[in-house]
């Protein structure tokens, strides 16, 4: 059993409006899954359904191998949209109250677990000041600490680096990778491609309530079947390669082919000076936009 999050035909309608139109998510154990989509594409509604906050209109959710959501949620840590806590209480008190609220928070280990979680997110130094006085970045970290309190098997994070400075973003990203390597599956939603590209191993793309793309990041960023060549001798190279040249501009050529090394040998052998030569790879952004665009056209045609 390697499915951590599996949905079949997950659907949510609000009156006549379809927020999530029957999606089949497949997040596997050990994934760092990036859930991409513009605002209003149905990401948050989907996450809320996974966490039992919103009741699906139709469809199945299987979380950590069970259809019984409350059981599964014991092993899930979540940060949904903005972090939230009781502003007049300290960070530690907030964590203590939250831990005591539900199942699985052993009282004897509570203080130690709180210290560990705060240490992990870089808040080990916090004092007794109330959360009201925290910066957005500190609240974000506190929210993450709350999600980590019981060593969850699955972390569900909605825009986790929101409000952090570049240094903080880097720290949190490294923390997530460490947790993931220790066995935690990470499901992260974001509207920032760069964030997902920097962190995730697998992506799902939402567009207008549909899951238009779901694949390994590597597969998406695979070779396009063209080779990019930069050379001052563009005319000479173009003449040499003939119909293999797919495009040329200035000092740059795109050549159809799968063998960069062989192409390099041919060019150099013919006396063409080569500055740069590499297989062209799909840009994640293009793939995502293309998937969303195609889905949009289908929706428009229907």
């Amino acid at each position: 059993m390697t499915g951590v999050v599996r949905t079949t035909g997950l659907l949510k309608r609000y009156g006549p409006l379809t927020a999530v139109g029957g999606i089949d998510l497949d997040v596997r154990a050990g994934d760092r899954y990036g859930f991409l989509g513009a605002n209003g594409s149905g990401k948050t509604t989907t996450i809320r359904m996974l966490l039992g906050l919103v009741h699906p209109t139709a469809g199945q959710i299987e979380l950590l191998g069970t259809h019984r959501l409350p059981d599964a949620l014991r092993q899930v840590g979540a940060v949904v949209e903005q972090p939230a806590s009781y502003g007049h209480l300290s960070g530690r008190t907030n964590l203590r109250l939250l831990d005591a609220s539900g199942p699985g928070g052993d009282r004897r280990t509570r203080s130690a677990r709180i210290d560990d979680a705060l240490e992990l997110v870089g808040l080990g130094w916090i004092d007794r000041r109330p959360v009201r006085a925290y910066s957005l970045g500190m609240r974000q970290r506190l929210g993450l600490a709350a999600a980590l309190l019981r060593r969850p098997r699955l972390l569900v994070l909605d825009e986790p680096t929101n409000g952090l400075d570049p240094q903080g973003i880097r720290e949190i990203r490294e923390l997530l990778v460490r947790l993931n390597e220790a066995g935690t599956t990470i499901f992260l939603s974001s509207h920032l491609l760069s964030e997902v590209a920097a962190l995730c191993t697998r992506v799902g793309v939402m567009d207008r309530g549909r899951l238009v793309l779901q694949d390994q990041l590597e597969a998406l960023g695979g070779p396009t079947g063209r080779i990019e060549v930069r050379t001052p001798d563009v005319a000479q190279a173009a003449a040499l390669l003939g119909r293999a040249v797919a495009a040329a501009d200035g000092t740059r050529l795109l050549v159809t082919g799968h063998d960069p090394a062989g192409l390099n040998a041919v060019l150099v052998g013919a006396g063409v000076r080569v500055e740069h030569l590499a297989a062209e790879r799909h840009e994640l952004e293009d793939v995502v936009l293309a998937a969303a665009g195609a889905a949009g056209e289908r929706a428009g045609a229907a």
């Binding site: 809320r48 039992g52 906050l53 409350p70 014991r74 939230a84 609220s101 709350a146």
Partner: peptide
């Protein structure tokens, strides 16, 4: 306060 969603997902 937004704390309701964290209580309910606690769960």
């Amino acid at each position: 306060d937004g704390t309701l969603r964290y209580l309910l997902t606690r769960p």
